[in-house]
Simulated assay, not measured.
Amino acid sequence: MGLEQTSQKTTSKDCAAKVMETIPLVMRAIRADMRAIGSTTLSVPQFRTLAFLDRNPGTSLSDLAEHLGVTRATASATIERLVQRNYVHRNDHPQERRRVVLKLTEDGLHHLEQARKQTRDRIADLFSDLTQEQILQIEEGLILLKQVFEQTVEQRQTDYLESP
């Protein structure tokens, strides 16, 4: 193994460690800011639920539970609270009696958009003291990170669909 390969492996491992160290920190800061500024009256799992339903309209309770990393019962309780607030429509699937179809209501979408806007504004405030060059570096790094993970997710979905 040459020096370049060793250096590259070390660099990718160092980068992976930084990602694993940084992403949870960013998420904790976002959650804390959301609670502190009252950008939403939703819990983080409820907010994540609305965001998931926005990206995946008509999804099932099982898909939501998998996304949240919780049981179907926990996901069902979360959905029930959101239905009561008129943020989510829960309907029976037309062909599968035991399946539920979940969609955001207009109120749910509006609330999600408001929470996202307030959170984006707060993050923008955090970046306000950075130079344009620093902001561009962060943006370029995030674009690259997103591309890497999107490719990984797409490949795993393809592999899953092709497996016997």
Rank of each mutant, 00 (worst) to 15 (best):
T119H: 01
A75L: 02
E139G: 15
S43A: 01
D107L: 10
L112F: 08
I123P: 00
K18G: 11
I123Y: 10
K146C: 09
T6N: 09
P164N: 10
T78A: 08
I143S: 13
A65P: 02
M27Y: 08
R156W: 08
R28H: 01
E139K: 14
S163G: 07
L102T: 02
T71I: 06
P24I: 07
P24H: 08
E66S: 11
D54I: 03
V26R: 00
G58E: 05
S128Q: 13
A115L: 03
E150K: 11
Y87W: 10
E154R: 13
E150F: 03
F52Q: 13
L109V: 02
Y87S: 04
V148R: 15
I30Q: 08
L126M: 13
E113N: 06
R81A: 14
H93M: 09
L145D: 00
T131Y: 01
D159T: 03
Q118H: 12
R116H: 04
A32S: 09
P24T: 04
T40D: 12
V148N: 04
S62H: 10
V88E: 07
Y160V: 03
L102H: 02
G2T: 14
E139L: 13
S39F: 13
D159I: 02
R28G: 03
R35I: 13
T74N: 10
I135F: 05
T131L: 07
A73F: 12
G58T: 02
T10S: 13
T131G: 15
S12T: 12
A32D: 15
L50D: 02
D33Y: 03
E150C: 11
R48I: 00
N86S: 08
T10V: 12
V148W: 04
C15R: 13
Q134V: 10
A77N: 15
I143L: 14
S60A: 06
S76N: 07
K103D: 00
T105L: 00
N86H: 12
M1S: 15
H110R: 09
E154I: 06
A115V: 07
N91K: 13
V83M: 08
L102Q: 01
G141C: 12
A73Q: 11
Q147P: 00
E140T: 07
S128W: 03
L102K: 02
L109F: 06
L68D: 06
G38I: 01
H110Q: 07
K146E: 01
R85T: 11
M27I: 07
Q134H: 05
T40L: 09
L53Y: 04
R81L: 12
M1D: 14
T59S: 13
G58N: 03
N91I: 01
T105W: 04
E139N: 07
D33F: 05
E113F: 07
L130H: 04
N56Q: 09
Y160D: 06
E4P: 01
D14K: 04
F52E: 12
R35K: 12
V101T: 02
H89I: 10
H89A: 03
Q8E: 11
A115G: 02
G141P: 05
T11F: 14
H111G: 04
V44H: 00
E80H: 13
L104A: 04
S43W: 00
T10I: 07
Y160A: 14
A124W: 10
E66Y: 01
L25F: 09
T105M: 04
D129C: 07
T158E: 08
